[in-house]
Design a protein around this nucleic acid. Structure first.
Length: 432
DNA sequence: TCTGGGGTCCTAGGACCC
DNA sequence: TCTGGGGTCCTAGGACCC
């Protein structure tokens, strides 16, 4: 059996832990740059606000209903997430951190050890998570990951289930499949849903009845075939346990939409420098080095200009590295290739892939090390300082805020940012 | 005026090899 | 007119996820 624990309206829930007066009220959290809605309280959902709604479009509705609007506060969410995942790691043998607010649990064989049934166990886990972290959750339990996702969805939608849905029999599996629309199945997005509707398939139950051939032909080959088998109750995906409670990634990306469109080369250079540095930090934190780097620039998709909206260039690094100075050097090289005058760029990013454990590269005889021992120590010092005194305390001069300005030209707005209650000493909540 | 920032996996097709 | 049959590696792009 697999369990799926999903935090309810995670970002809003994190904010409510530190502002209990928001409990029971409509609240939304906005994406970077205060662009779109990315988390909604139940009350906000009831007003018809959708995930991804642009703020400027729904502003009148938000004002009309006195909705609390917050900018996103990732240091807070990341820290709350770690607390949730840590607890799950304590009570189950294996946890796969699937996203910032979701985890799969391996419950195989657990029935023999927990005194009670798995759903009773799940209720205890929910209650303890709420007591320890303040975060409400729902749990789905089923023989496959896809069915656990589906069960979780029902646990969220049906209050009478008390936040836990356990599909332990054939009857329950069939019942659950009947309840869910095909577009709400994990792995069915907009394109596939449209195809399925035109083929007359509208529920998860009907999808589970599809032939292997149909799934292969219309739902992305082997991916679709596995999806259907999982709905039928045959596991096709195992658990990828997150050993040290962190997510080891195969690629990583640091990108941002600018606060306003930018054309000047130095402005964009400042952004790309900052992103490459940040990508280096992420890379070193997971102990990896990168073989390939992609740098991209994007223009607005919403204006009058025709596509392409984005251009990118890939560099193969001669030797895998995680050294910020090296990464920045290559990123600038790539940017020089890409940048063209008279464009209004709205976004840029640095992607690293071909990741391998750092220090694994064997240097051949006579080949000078690309990064000396000294540089490795320098990076370690840099990371230590930034950990201790706050992100961005020590950085490259090109990524600095221009003198006399509050922020770099590429940085955006975060008008309603709450304090980093749990990760900045100055922001600690004072009680009394 | 204002529209997020991350990720994953898979397939198709081209270049090249024997 | 007819025009091997495999492989491998790489990249671009599509589809999906939260």
């Amino acid at each position: 059996m697999f369990g799926l624990v999903d935090c309810n309206n995670f970002y809003v829930s994190c904010e409510r832990v530190f502002q209990p007066r928001l409990e029971g009220k409509p609240v939304v959290v906005l994406s970077n740059n205060d662009g779109c809605i990315i988390s909604r309280s139940a009350e906000a959902k009831a007003l018809g606000l959708q995930m991804g709604d642009p703020y400027f479009q729904v502003k009148p509705l938000l004002l009309q209903h006195n909705v609390t609007v917050l900018s996103s506060n990732y240091p807070l969410y990341g820290d709350m997430s770690r607390r949730v995942m840590w607890y799950l790691g304590q009570v189950t043998p294996a946890v796969e951190i699937y996203s910032i607010d979701e985890a799969f649990l391996d419950l195989h064989g657990l029935e023999r050890f927990v005194v009670s049934r798995l759903d009773t166990f799940a209720r205890t886990v929910r209650a303890n998570l709420l007591a320890r972290t303040g975060i409400p959750t729902c749990v789905g339990i089923a023989p496959t990951k896809t069915l656990a996702k589906l069960a979780n969805r029902l646990a969220k939608k049906r209050p009478e289930l008390g936040g836990v849905c356990y599909l332990d029999t054939e009857e329950k599996r069939c019942w659950a499949l009947e309840q869910v629309a095909v577009e709400d199945v994990w792995g069915i997005g907009r394109q596939y849903a449209q195809k399925l509707y035109s083929a007359g398939i509208t529920t998860a139950a009907e999808l589970a009845g599809c032939s292997d051939g149909f799934a292969r032909k219309h739902l992305g080959g082997v991916v679709g075939a596995r999806l259907v088998r999982e709905l039928q109750g045959t596991p096709c995906h195992g658990l990828a346990p997150s050993e040290d409670g962190t997510l080891a990634r195969r690629s990583l990306c640091c990108s941002r939409t600018f606060g306003k469109p930018l054309s000047a080369f130095p402005d964009i250079m400042g952004a790309v420098t900052a992103f490459a540095s940040r990508a280096g930090e992420k890379l070193r934190r997971q102990g990896d080095a990168a073989h390939f780097m992609t740098v991209f620039l994007s223009k607005s998709r919403y204006g009058v200009e025709p596509p392409p909206y984005s251009c990118s260039t890939v560099l193969t690094l001669p030797v895998a590295t995680n050294d910020t100075l090296e990464l920045v050097r290559y990123a600038r090289l790539a940017l020089k290739r890409l940048w063209q005058a008279d464009n209004r760029y709205t976004k840029a990013g640095v992607v690293l892939d071909g990741l391998e454990p750092a220090g694994q590269t064997q240097l051949t005889l006579f080949e000078a090390g690309p990064v000396s021992e000294k540089r490795v120590r320098l990076m370690a010092e840099l990371d230590a300082l930034n950990r201790r005194y706050g992100k961005g305390t020590v950085r490259l001069a090109t990524a600095l805020t221009p003198p006399g300005q509050r922020q770099a030209p590429w940085e955006g707005q975060a008008q309603w940012r709450t304090p980093a209650y749990t990760t900045r000493l100055e922001d600690l909540l004072l009680v009394g």
